[in-house]
Amino acid sequence: MRAIQYAAPRSLGDAVAILQERGNKARILAGGTDLIVQVGEDARDVDVMVDGKHIPELMELSFDPEKGLTLGAAVPCYRIYEHPEIKKHYPGLVDSTSIIGGTGIQGRASVGGNLCNSGPAADSIPTLIAYGATVRIVGANGERTVPVENFCTAPGRNVLAADELLISIHLPAPSAHSGACYLRFIPRNEMDIAVVGAGVSITLDDNGIVTAARVALAAVAPTPLFVPEAGDSLVGKAPTEEAIAAAAEIAKNTARPISDMRGTAEHRKHLVGVLTRRALHRALERARA
């Protein structure tokens, strides 16, 4: 690895100050499972690693039935999937965080890092979009909030300015009769990058009619892909086999995958339909449970 510098600020202000001074050659180090590997392979041009794990806001993990879930940007996956309230209220997040790398990776890797790495195949991002999550960002000019679906801008790129960092991710409070699910397709049974991923959420009224649904996809576009039309097509309807199949078809037709060593474009497009349908069924089961 090239020679780098390391800083471990204790506050957001100190971290922002470093970012402000060092610009895009400074990078926040959360779990490090992407960043350290990328810098080692000269895939990212970084002079300073700014360890975010000593900043309290980045390590916050709190749930409030009224306000929802606050997920500090550097909270590792295992703390998320082992959290009793998350298991109960955000099973889609458990789906995602328990398949990112192996258990050793999950001991460090964070959802915030997954988001900032901004890979098209990131396993947590479709789930965050499905949950309607927003992110809290701080920079030299203060704070702002961005919906997750607007966060990534290109492979490996996002809306963060050089002097900004991601503080936390906020997931809205769970509504009654709601469920979510993330499914990914990989050639093995673990450890692969998603060939396709589908994160969905669905909310029913007391009569079982869909009041809200969101569908987002991984690995079928340059960024994680929010497909509002797919979810919207279910709203106001009973979530029948046919309605779900129709929503899945919309997702499939929206996907614009490429062929690479992980799968062909045709197969990926087809898989979007299959995974979206299966994920919606699973989310529905959870909504009804």
Binding site: A8, T33, G102, I105, G107
Partner: peptide, 14 residues
């Protein structure tokens, strides 16, 4: 917690 030490910097082990 189980970690992969190839993905952790030594300085993080402080």
């Amino acid at each position: 917690r189980l970690v992969n030490t190839c993905c952790v910097l030594a300085v993080e082990a402080q």
